[in-house]
């Protein structure tokens, strides 16, 4: 589905069902360099169980127009714009990696429409090393290789995902290549610059589910523990053998956790 946010065209997949703001909404927000397809093993499930689903591409990513946003705060503003444009009310926000920082920021600012937050594979901040930052600017292929090499755990590297025939790393790389050339660098800059996590997290009033990947090299346990400790209303679930790319590496376990949490905190009329 395409729609306008402040004059710029945004794309979001609705999981195979038309978007209906009267239903509770599950919004899926991707991480740095990603797009809506990272959620395909979660989004469709909710769309067929009484929820309106929205998995947008951030500006400058895959199908969404506009220049990539360079700060988490700007992304939070933009996401709020998406909610307003579509009149989203009872929202469960599911975010991965960089998306979690956006969710924290937004969750602290406008708690009224958020029924729950699910934060997958993130801490309060996402410092990015210089080598990756400069590669994202100068040598995108090298940056893509670094991101996917570090991001994916064994399920990715050994193509051991549960979707028969699928080898997820190549797909993940293709998505990054398909974004506008500045997108990855913008995303990583935004991650690196974001310093408001510690202040934002305690302001999040909605129930939060922190999903931790046991083999995550990007958001290690220390970081996710810190995130959970700063949230007033959080529960933690660990997927022991997943790497950072949880929605793809451990889609069934991830979906089960989301399902239990969202069904409870933002029930739909039909399940």
């Amino acid at each position: 589905m395409y729609f306008d946010v402040k004059g710029t065209q945004v794309f979001a997949t609705t999981g195979g069902k038309p978007f209906d703001p009267a239903q509770p909404v599950v919004v899926f927000l991707h991480g740095a360099g990603g797009d809506h397809t990272v959620w395909n093993l979660q989004s469709r499930f909710f769309a067929f169980r009484g929820y309106s689903v929205l998995a947008p591409d951030l500006p400058g990513h895959t199908n969404s127009e506009g220049a990539p946003l360079v700060s988490i705060e700007a992304m939070a503003d933009w996401l709020n714009g998406v909610f307003e444009a579509l009149d989203c009310r009872d929202v469960s926000l599911v975010a991965h990696s960089m998306g979690c920082l956006v969710a924290l920021e937004l969750g602290s600012r406008c708690p009224d429409r958020l029924r729950s937050l699910s934060l997958i594979a993130s801490g309060l901040a996402t410092p990015v090393n210089d080598a990756l930052l400069s590669a994202a600017r100068d040598k995108p292929e090298a940056a893509i290789a670094m991101m996917t090499s570090w991001g994916y755990g064994a399920a990715g590297h050994y193509s051991r995902g549960p979707v028969p025939g699928n080898a997820m790393i190549a797909g993940g790389q293709m998505v990054m290549r398909g974004n506008s050339p500045e997108a990855l660098h913008a995303d990583l800059t935004a991650c690196n610059d974001y310093a408001n996590g510690k202040q934002a997290a305690p302001q999040v009033k909605a129930p939060v589910q922190v999903i931790v990947a046991g083999k995550d090299r990007m958001a290690p346990k220390k970081a996710t523990d810190e995130l959970a400790a700063h949230l007033p209303n959080a529960s933690v679930a660990v997927i022991a053998d997943s790497g950072h790319m949880v929605p793809q590496e451990a889609p069934n376990r991830c979906r089960q956790l989301l399902r239990d949490f969202i069904f409870q905190n933002n029930p739909a009329g039909q399940t």
Partner: peptide, 28 residues
């Protein structure tokens, strides 16, 4: 979600081969 319903469409043993070939070829 991924999963198996009927061997005409997917099969776990065939799936191993498919994912191995995709991986060797560098495809999605």
């Amino acid at each position: 979600r991924g999963g198996h319903a009927y061997t005409r469409i997917t099969n776990p043993t065939v799936g191993v081969l498919e994912q191995r070939i995709a991986s060797l070829e560098g495809g999605s």
